[in-house]
């Protein structure tokens, strides 16, 4: 009965969707605002990558919001999860090849992540993509050897510093330009150079570090959660966090 009712509902919803989607123009995007941004992007932001211009300059507040969502999700996950002792793990350590491979990949992933972040205003890529690569650099070794200690302390400071930088750059621009989150107080620079497009590279660097640290700590929280057959650690929450 329940199955029947849900199927009926789905058919209804599918019909509703097909009516909605049927009325949409395809391949004839209205480009109301998009065209204006494509035309004004270089002059306004100096960034070759228009998506970067939209993310960090035109819609910077959205990016701050999404950054904060990652942060608050990681915080809430850290509040909910029980921790098991470091080194106590149900999951076995991976074999030599995986362990050595993870160690070997670490510096290359760091370099690639840094490259993707710093060239975000010129080429495809940027803070989110690069941040995800940075996070992978840290949790690939962690996946290979699940029992190892996670650098929570250092991570907390990177996280706080990067997040604060993103907002402080915004507040700083109030004094220079009069507007919050105006990224152009450094000048747009020479188009196509690494150091150009105002504070966009700085913003992307802060964003990348923050995203990397948040994704890393989210994975660490999930990995630190004891499985169903691990013994509980009776430890007061406050003691765990300090």
């Amino acid at each position: 009965m329940r199955q029947f009712a849900s199927l009926l509902f789905l058919f209804g919803f599918a019909f509703f969707l097909s009516v909605l989607v049927g009325g949409l123009p395809f391949g004839a995007a209205p480009m109301q605002v998009g065209q204006a941004i494509v035309e004004q992007n270089i002059e306004a932001t100096g960034a070759a990558n228009a998506v970067t211009g939209v993310l960090l300059a035109f819609r910077g507040m959205d990016t701050l919001g999404e950054l904060t969502i990652l942060f608050v999700a990681a915080t809430a996950a850290g509040m909910v999860v029980e921790r098991r002792k470091h080194g106590v793990s149900r999951d076995s350590v991976a074999g030599f090849i995986l362990l050595a491979g993870a160690e070997l990949m670490f510096p290359f992933l760091l370099i690639l992540g840094a490259y993707v972040i710093l060239h975000g205003h010129l080429t495809p890529g940027g803070g989110f993509q690069g941040g995800a690569i940075l996070a992978a650099a840290f949790f690939v070794p962690f996946l290979a050897n699940p029992g190892r200690a996670f650098q929570g302390h250092a991570m907390a400071f990177v996280e706080a510093f990067a997040g604060a930088t993103f907002i402080l750059l915004g507040i700083f621009s109030i004094f220079r330009e009069g507007d919050f989150m105006a990224p152009m107080f450094l000048g747009t620079g020479e188009f196509g150079q690494l150091v150009s497009a105002g504070s966009l590279p700085l913003l992307y660097l802060a964003l990348g570090l923050k995203v990397g640290a948040e994704l890393g700590s989210l994975v660490a929280e999930i990995a630190a959660a004891p499985g169903s057959d691990d013994p509980l650690i009776e430890e007061p929450q406050a003691a765990k966090d300090l």
Binding site: I37, V51, R59, I69, L70, A73
Partner: peptide, 29 residues
């Protein structure tokens, strides 16, 4: 092509990942 939807989707993907991760953590606990 219109750059705005691409930027919006980037934002929406990250939001989805964050919510999914929190949900999975709750589910594990």
């Amino acid at each position: 092509v219109d750059p705005i939807p691409q930027a919006l989707v980037l934002t929406a993907i990250v939001i989805g990942v964050a919510v999914l991760a929190l949900g999975l953590t709750l589910a594990i606990r």
